[in-house]
Amino acid sequence: MNNEPDLPPSHDEARRNFLKQSSLLTAVALVPAPVVQAATAELDERVAAAIEKVPLKLEINGKKYKLDVEPRTTLLDLLREQLNLTGTKKGCDYGQCGACTVHVDGQRVNSCLSFAVMHDGKKITTIEGLADGDKLHPMQAAFVKHDGFQCGYCTPGQIMSAVACVREGHADSEAEIREYMSGNICRCGAYTNIVAAIQEVKNGGQKV
């Protein structure tokens, strides 16, 4: 299959997988919609699983993972459904609420809007990786102290976003915090308390 685009050397495995997929598809004369076709042609289950997955290396909360995932698996669903890291929440699945906020290489992003495979080789930090053992991160402690939540469902996303907000230098005033935290919806409406928590951390001078 010489018309496949080239891949970086580290993706040899992925390449082999694609090649395998392509030849498999050729073998059963199915082009070009692999899965719909696999579905309707009642391809053997194991074959279907094999062609659907690609290898993926991630470092999550300091731990290295070697995984095989479907390209269509989002980072959020990978965390929640396959790795049991359910601290990261699904609130809308469309990038409209911020509950799924995690850090990828230190930057806050919506984990629902990217495929896990796109983050191959990257470092992910979720709410589970924020505390230092039993010692809460200063932002976590400030959220408890200022009651920056009610139901708690948006809270992991709020905290991950808040930590990034301070690190980015976007927490210099109440107005700036309000704007740069607007990507995290709290339907319980604990907004004022969230701002208080962020301001305390920002002004406290602790390392975030």
Partner: peptide, 19 residues
């Protein structure tokens, strides 16, 4: 008094229905 479940909620350890 701080919430008794505050620690669970800020660490992601609070378990909701789908979890």
């Amino acid at each position: 008094l701080n919430r008794v479940d505050g620690h669970l909620k800020v660490t992601g350890a609070a378990t909701y229905s789908a979890e």
